[in-house]
Nucleic acid binder design. Structure first.
Lengths: 190, 190
DNA sequence: ACTCCAAAGCTAAGTGCATTAGCTTTATGG
DNA sequence: CCATAAAGCTAATGCACTTAGCTTTGGAGT
């Protein structure tokens, strides 16, 4: 192939880097091209315009999160598993604060990778709440409850929505305590 | 004054309308000018550029939310108050889904109105958790817990982050139940 | 009623970005 | 060694934000 040896993958890598460094609003084709050492229109050989690139970055972020959650669900169970997963979620968003807002949307219906990543995250959460809900239909509400709570916390923390930065660890501990205590009545097995 | 009789207020009104209709990304000075029946540069007589207008819209959204929360905190107490406030929060975001993402940021430090609105929301929440925490320092963690949980739920719902739209009311009921049950151990007075 | 002036509007012009079209180069496979 | 398809480029268009500077208008004060 030709000079810079770009691939769709590499372009998305650069885009993710820009988002992590400067936030989603700073993602522009011009900036990606500059980092790639290439003229802006050349990117269209690898990516179908800015909106598509945004979606690809979102997919990548969803996949990374899924990996983290899957890892955090290994070898734990019960309340400890809930704490492990939620803590991993929060820590991941703290490490990548600019991705926070990207994690709330539905995966693109035409992107199997995004669908798979989303399903994988749900599966990790489902494993963790399995002992709190008998049927999958019951558990979905618990999964949504946990996801909403951590996601809200992570977004607020990442975007400075909590007034003072101090004591946020204590607040997160409170969140975990409240959720774990609130989940107790749903437990199936003593 | 002159022809269109614009004011900073009126410009922000139009901007809020655009955000509510088409989302934050659709907010452009050109579109505001079109709705106002005015040439784009004329807006600079009333507003200090697009970023400032965005902030003003955010402030307005924060104020509206505060009003809703204040109203929902009237004449209720205990668990019912928690449910009332959180339900009002969720309903408000459902009514204005495009504002969801705007409600996570810190209020601009140089905008007293935004500061006041944020403080007012916190005050409503504080009143509701007063019987669960003795000191203000204790309550802040409960406030953050509740806010994170509802905000996460509202954002995920508004942005389609929950897979299927059905059963979301049940999920929200579960969220409320879990939070109320989890809060119980913190109750001061029986 | 008249004058003046500040506010509110306008047009013109510059900049940056996204995107499309069409050309040129390069590397690779036959 | 050459043909070709991918990868890159330049040129050009359109849209949005923004600044500069001019024009109009409506009301305040006489």
């Amino acid at each position: 192939m030709a000079r810079a040896g770009l691939t769709p993958q590499a372009v998305v890598d650069l885009a993710v880097g820009i988002v992590d460094d400067e936030g989603p609003d700073a993602l522009t084709l011009a900036k990606v091209a500059q980092r790639a050492g290439v003229a802006t229109p050349s990117l269209y050989k690898h990516v179908d315009g800015l909106p598509a690139l945004r979606r690809a970055v979102e997919t990548r972020a969803t996949e990374d999160l899924a990996r983290v959650l899957n890892a955090a669900a290994l070898g734990v169970s019960g309340d400890a598993a809930v704490r492990s997963l939620l803590t991993a979620y929060r820590d991941h968003v703290r490490t990548h604060p600019h991705r926070a807002a990207m994690l709330a949307g539905a995966p693109a219906p035409d992107d199997p990778a995004a669908q798979a990543a989303a399903a994988s995250s749900v599966a990790s959460l489902d494993a963790v709440v399995r002992e709190y809900g008998a049927s999958a239909a019951d558990r979905i509400h618990l999964i949504r409850t946990l996801r909403a709570a951590v996601h809200g916390f992570a977004v607020l923390e990442a975007q400075g929505g909590f007034g003072l930065p101090q004591d946020i660890d204590t607040s997160f501990a409170t969140l975990l305590d409240v959720l774990v205590a609130g989940l107790a009545p749903h437990r199936r097995t003593a």
